[in-house]
């Protein structure tokens, strides 16, 4: 009798100790796991409702349709993990698209146009980073100025849409590498490469760890001798670069540059990053989580179009989901930050 009791007790003890190890190590993964759960539930629900939702074609389209969002989400993850925010990404994306389309339509060769689109030299991201770091402007305000600036510049380039006929750019979208019924486009490959690079940089470089340290406590990071200033400027440069790359991808996707593209996209991006498990207060989050967030967003959109309902439901549902995640995150953080 006693032996049985002890083994049960042991088992309970080992389970609780496993749980303790798990929560002490991986509490910050929980929101991302929750996002994965939400995604699976969505997919299963949609599959049982429509029967043909989780099909190779539909799933491949999910990546294709949301490639630009995924690229933006990677950059935004860097910024938000430092406890910053970048409102300019949607406008930067639109500006890049219309700039590229305009250059190509006036006969600028693609090997010049694309590097300009991706932007060398002085960029908006660098400007924003400098404002935030050296002039102590709140990220929200600085990137707000960036939003205005890029949007206005987009209209300066052109007030209306410009078609792109450059074959090499359209190739990015039109080419489909197939495996059975699955396919992937070069834009999808770009998105995945960006996600993978972002995840590796965040996890395996000192720069990436400094990003996390700044989000945890900027003052501590400085006292620990980390290069805070350079890192903070860099995350805005990265986010700006992602915005431009997304502009390139979106131009390929839509076959045109359009100055009204990406209005409100910054909010979608922030929402998917948060849903993917990144804390808006900084310090916690994963690039891969943001990718999951993008899939959640994309799936909701696609479910709604399957149902034939109003697309406006997307933002209502995403808004509600955002709220739930924010409240849950607050609870998780409050719990895990309480020292035992």
């Amino acid at each position: 009798m006693t032996t049985v009791q002890t083994t049960t007790a042991d088992r309970v003890a080992s389970v609780t100790s496993f749980l303790r190890t798990f929560t002490s190590r991986y509490a910050s993964v929980l929101p991302t796991l929750a996002a994965v759960g939400v995604l699976l539930l969505l997919l299963m629900g949609a599959q049982s409702r429509f029967g043909n939702f989780v099909s190779p074609g539909n799933m491949s389209a999910l990546l294709l349709d949301n490639a630009y969002l995924m690229i933006l989400a990677v950059g935004m993850t860097f910024v938000i993990v430092t406890a910053g925010i970048d409102l300019s990404v949607g406008s930067v994306m639109a500006f890049t698209g219309i700039l590229g389309a305009s250059m190509l339509s006036t006969g600028v060769p693609v090997y010049i146009a694309v590097p300009i689109m991706l932007g060398g030299g002085a960029t908006i991201g660098l400007l924003l980073g400098v404002l935030v770091q050296y002039f102590n402007v709140q990220p929200f305000i600085a990137t707000l100025a960036g939003l205005f600036l890029a949007r206005g510049l987009a209209y300066v380039v052109s007030l209306s849409s410009i078609r792109v006929e450059e074959p090499s750019l359209l190739w990015l979208q039109a080419t489909r590498f197939r495996l059975g019924d699955w396919y992937i486009t070069p834009t999808g490959i770009i998105a995945i490469v960006v996600v993978a690079t972002g995840a590796l940089v965040m996890h395996f470089t000192r720069f990436g760890r400094t990003v996390y340290a700044i989000g945890g406590s900027e003052q501590s990071a400085r006292l620990m001798g980390l290069n805070v200033a350079r890192t903070k400027v860099m995350v805005y440069v990265i986010s700006g670069f992602c915005g431009r790359l997304a502009g390139l991808v979106l131009t390929a996707y839509s076959g045109a540059g359009y100055p009204r593209n990406g209005i409100g996209t910054e909010l979608d991006v922030i929402a998917v990053v948060v849903i993917g498990g990144t804390l808006l207060t900084g310090g916690r989050g994963y690039v891969l989580g943001s990718m999951v967030g993008v899939f959640v967003f994309g799936t909701i959109k696609s479910v709604i179009s399957f149902m034939g309902a109003e697309q406006s439901w997307t933002h209502i549902i995403v808004g509600a989901l955002l709220l739930v995640f924010i409240v849950v995150q607050r609870a998780i953080v409050a719990r895990s930050d309480r020292p035992r």
């Binding site: 925010i85 929200f140 409100g264 909010l267 979608d268 922030i270 929402a271 808006l280 109003e310 406006s312 439901w313 997307t314 933002h315 209502i316 995403v318 808004g319 509600a320 955002l322 709220l323 924010i326």
Partner: peptide, 18 residues
Amino acid sequence: PIIATLVLMLAGRGVALL
């Protein structure tokens, strides 16, 4: 505040469209 009001900023227009 930024986050709290972001929720409505995102969902509000959807509600208006509905």
